[in-house]
């Protein structure tokens, strides 16, 4: 190991450190050149990312499927068991027609809320080194996507557009530790703040200490002024555990997010929302199985019995 650096090396090291500190200062003071540099690099990279997404995404999905094989199998078994229970219950029910009518009334999420959306493909899954949870989509300012717009899938809230470039946009996911959204409990209308935790589980903190949460409560986005960054009524997740710690000022709860962030491929950016708040209209309906018709056969004696 070397005993020490020479003066030239020290001078170089100090110069480089000072330069980096200078850059940090400039950026924190909001100098536009720095922002322009990042925008420029992203504009140059997004076509390459689009091509790479087309070529390598199937390979990436394969690896993702392989790593989730055990979990998928467990989920299939659980679903099979649930399906059997549902099938049994369904056979015993006499009002299957009424349930069929309900099944037909299930509408698409965006269609129900009358959101004006732009669909986009996910072209990059974000950084692996910066502790952030982001995705890049292939729609940008050219498609009407602007900063602070809500991003959804059919299951619910994905995140919010953090930066918009001409042909791509960076979306901060709901799982990002820096993500915060005003939330509302469907039904009881209690309000709180939901924050990302870096995993598929988020934490909800209620604002009112007089109200209570219970497991299974559905959490929706409360909406922002002029619908930016969040449109109201988008499903976020479901309460899984409630923290009733004595001495806590307000109640907190763990919320399992509806969206599977590991399998995002197409998302929609809400570029226009209706004036009316959809309230609880987007709360996901409980799954209803398809009824299985039963056939009853009556045995009839034949007219000419055989000897």
């Amino acid at each position: 190991m070397r005993s020490g650096g020479d003066n030239r090396g020290r001078l170089l090291l100090i110069s480089l450190i000072v330069t980096s500190l200078f850059l940090i200062t400039l950026d924190l003071r909001g100098v536009q050149v720095i922002t322009g540099l990042r925008n420029g690099s992203q504009s140059a990279l997004s076509p390459v990312q689009s091509v790479a997404a087309t070529v390598f995404r199937p390979v990436g999905n394969f690896f993702s499927d392989v790593t989730h094989l055990g979990r998928t199998r467990g989920e299939i078994n659980k679903l099979k068991a649930a399906n059997e229970k549902l099938r049994q219950a369904l056979i015993n029910r006499k009002n299957a027609d009424a349930e069929l009518t309900q099944l037909k009334s299930v509408l698409d999420l965006a269609g129900t809320a009358k959101y004006k959306v732009v669909s986009a493909k996910v072209i990059s899954l974000g950084s692996t080194s910066s502790f952030t949870q982001t995705i890049t989509i292939d729609a940008g300012t050219n498609d009407g996507v602007r900063q602070n717009m809500t991003v959804i899938t059919g299951l619910g809230l994905v995140g919010v557009v953090k930066i918009s470039y001409p042909s791509s946009a960076l979306v901060q996911l709901t799982t990002d530790p820096a993500f915060r959204v005003g939330a509302r409990v469907a039904g009881s209308q209690q309000i709180g703040i939901l924050s990302g935790q870096g995993t598929r589980k988020a934490v909800l903190q209620l604002l009112d200490n007089q109200t209570t949460l219970k497991v299974g409560d559905v959490i929706l986005a409360r909406g922002s002024q002029n619908n930016r960054p969040f449109v109201p009524g988008v499903p976020i997740g479901e309460v899984t555990t409630v923290d009733n710690a004595a001495g806590a000022v307000t109640q907190t709860a763990d919320v399992k997010l509806y969206v599977n962030f590991a399998a995002l491929s197409v998302v929609s950016v809400v570029i226009g929302a209706p004036k009316a708040d959809p309230r609880d209209a987007l709360v996901p309906k409980a799954p209803v199985p398809t009824p299985v018709p039963t056939v009853t056969v009556y045995a009839q004696p034949s007219e000419s019995p055989t000897p």
């Binding site: 850059l23 200062t25 950026d27």
Partner: peptide, 18 residues
């Protein structure tokens, strides 16, 4: 630092990588 996914200010990765 130029990466769009860098969460910190420009120069943070530079300082650490030096």
């Amino acid at each position: 630092d130029l990466s769009q996914t860098a969460s910190g200010p420009m120069g943070q990765w530079t300082l650490i990588m030096i």
